[in-house]
Amino acid sequence: MSTPEQVAATRPTGGDEAIGSPRPTRGLRSDALRRLRRNPMAVVGFTLILIFVGVAVFAPWIAPYSPKDNSWLSEVRPGAYPGPSAEHWLGIDPLGRDVFSRLVYGARQSLLIGVVSLAVGATVGVGIGLLAGAFGGWVDTVVMRLVDIMLSVPGLLFAIAIAAMLGQSLTSVMIAIAVVNIPIFARLLRGEMLGQRAADYVLAARSLGISRAGIVFRHVLPNSFTPVIVQGTLTLALAIVEAAGLAFLGLSGSDPSAPEWGRMLTDAQVALTSAPQLALYPGLAIVLAALGFTLLGESLREALDPKLRR
């Protein structure tokens, strides 16, 4: 839920890069890529993401069993869950299912939640931000007041409220997380665009008689998009963590048998004393996946910041 501050993060730096050149970012981008490759944080982050996405995509080939198969129920006793063995690499869960298979399939759900909520949140947010940033004036005022209202409610509470209203399902979790991200993207893009509009090259273009729409779409928007991409990477990470938080509060997909890391972590709290490993696996999975996106996003932000170029 710690996203509003990233908005603030861009506040003092936004707007004064790339002055004068009409296509200022190409040089910056290739330069950024080069610096990204040299940054160990970015490499680690990228590797983690690659593993995460790979596991999610190839889950049926990696997992030895179906995640819902409870054939091993008879081997389970309260508080005594069979540990790792040759057949079950990470042991059996309290309801007689293979933990490893559930963990592998869980990657799919987490990726799905992250990507969908990001796509929805960013698209709507960017649209709103575009509206405000492009038109300015009273449109800007109204839109930004709405954004202020949304931001005045703590993100998680907001998400719980939406999920509670929409009912128990994966869709409502994704919508809840997406809605929380809308004002963040809106404010981010609008702030960037305002900064760009005041930049010298825009003033120059305007004095050359280029139309307002032309300026916005050909110059202002592309140049304002960099922070949105950075924010998007970080939002993916946060969405995975937020989904876990919602699961902890009892708001997640309607089918509890469907493997999902946040839910697995929450369910494991019941047996935390007798089988802490059941909480540790999904906990680590969440941390590593989210860390991958965060590391990459942070490195990206840094690489794209012209002030840090030496």
Binding site: S2, A237, L238, V241, A244, G245, F248, G262, L265, T266, A279, G283, I286, V287, A290, L291, T294
Partner: peptide, 8 residues
């Protein structure tokens, strides 16, 4: 700190 679910 941001990636560890806080309840965990």
């Amino acid at each position: 700190g941001v990636t560890v679910p806080i309840f965990f």
